[in-house]
Write a protein that binds this DNA or RNA. Structure first.
Lengths: 238, 238
DNA sequence: AGAAAAATCGAGCGATTGCTCGATTTTTCT
DNA sequence: AGAAAAATCGAGCAATCGCTCGATTTTTCT
């Protein structure tokens, strides 16, 4: 496949070399004091098992419906083993949220600084968001679904992250109008519904996998949809 | 306010005279055998208290995070009192889901049979969905968030309901193409993202209320957004 | 190989869970 | 007013919860 911006999922995946292992390394580095395990290799291996198990259980019961015995069985670690990584169940939730958000935030911000005209930047922003959510889908899904289960402080943090993404889109739309490239619409509402369409990709995975719709196809569709609303000239495809 | 189709939220609300009381009456009628209470008036009053309390608690902790003691305290009924209405916590969840879905299904189907050209029918469908979700927002939110907590049977039921709505939209889009009114797009994907934008209205209430965006304004925005993608001639506004 | 360090284990603690049921109160009859 | 029916109550049961900690196993040293 080849698109206007040259960005494809395969290329993206290669460039960033993301994956759950990097995620777990981040968690380990940022929680060295509380995690009782010393060796990175051991920690990363078990954190990965814990997270996988958490996502698997929570996608069925939700975080509060998951018991630590459930998690122990599913992850293969003992009760005591689990508590060598997290001081409490609550801390597991918060860590998962915080590190996930931080990870996503970092990548989106890098992306948002990339130059080009508004149209290009919109394309890149949409694709980056979709690609990220494709690679670490369980994190995105978990964050969204369990935001309400968090403490007030952590929940506010999540809402702020949600608005941050929306604002990145908003800025691009406004830039487009300034450059005479985009029509002058209700940007706030537009950014909001664009966000909801981006989220649908990781929230309704069951639907899109069954229909065998690739992330690139979804991305191209979204871009076309948005551009037909915003672009004054539907210019130069392909 | 006055729109092309003459449909406004106020008018809708008046016509259907919906509200939680009708909802609770439905629950009572459909569960006469299991509910130990005889008098409708008493049952409806207490069911209303139970549901309100459930939504309030679950929006913070999720269904599995809510204990029956939480529910007892928040609703003002005793433990024994609660179990006069539901034989188990699980049954409360299923009833809430089933009756909610049935209620929504009924109204959307009635709407979908209304005549007119594709453009009009699309407008009416979007507005009806938004208006319904505005009136019984807690039900929509709860259904969406707790679908994963349900038994396989009930979960499949929810997914089917989700696809039902999508199909209603899909049919209208295809009709529009046949009538030469709509462009020939990827209807399946279009219906899917339209659904996600409709859902955003009840999932992100915190955002839209803070920004003081009315349901009518949101509806008009969505319609404009979709029509710019689909309509061959952006014809006759107002 | 033997000792020190690191990692893993799971029985058991007190608190909380979903739920029951006999006692009590309120309402509706004659 | 008094009896029958309906509605409400909450202490208490067995099961499960989050979590601890001393014992045990595995790994890494010299």
């Amino acid at each position: 496949m080849s698109f206007e911006d040259g960005l494809t999922f395969d290329a993206f995946q290669e460039e960033f070399r993301l994956g759950k292992e990097d995620f777990c390394r981040d968690v380990f580095q940022e929680n060295r004091e509380t995690i009782q395990i010393k060796k990175e290799k051991t920690a990363v291996k078990n954190l990965s098992r814990i997270f996988d198990a958490t996502f698997r259980i929570c996608s069925r019961k939700g975080f509060r419906g998951m018991s630590m015995r459930d998690l122990s069985q599913e992850s293969g670690l003992s009760m005591g083993g689990l508590y060598a990584y997290f001081r409490s169940k609550e801390e597991l939730l918060n860590t998962l949220q915080r590190v996930g958000n931080h990870f996503i935030h970092r990548h989106l911000e890098t992306t948002s600084r990339k130059g080009g005209d508004a149209r290009q930047r919109l394309r890149i922003m949409i694709k980056t968001h979709l690609y990220l959510s494709e690679i670490v889908q369980p994190w995105f899904y978990f964050s969204y679904m369990e935001a309400k289960s968090m403490s007030r402080k952590e929940r506010d943090f999540y809402k702020q992250a949600e608005l941050f993404t929306e604002n990145l889109i908003l800025k691009i739309l406004k830039q487009g109008v300034k450059e005479g490239q985009f029509a002058d619409q209700d940007h706030q509402l537009a950014a909001s519904v664009i966000k909801s369409m981006l989220q649908d990709w990781y929230l309704k995975r069951w639907k899109y996998s069954k229909r065998e719709i690739s992330v690139d196809r979804y991305a191209e569709f979204l871009i076309g949809f948005i551009e037909s609303f915003y672009c004054l000239s539907q210019g130069s495809e392909g």
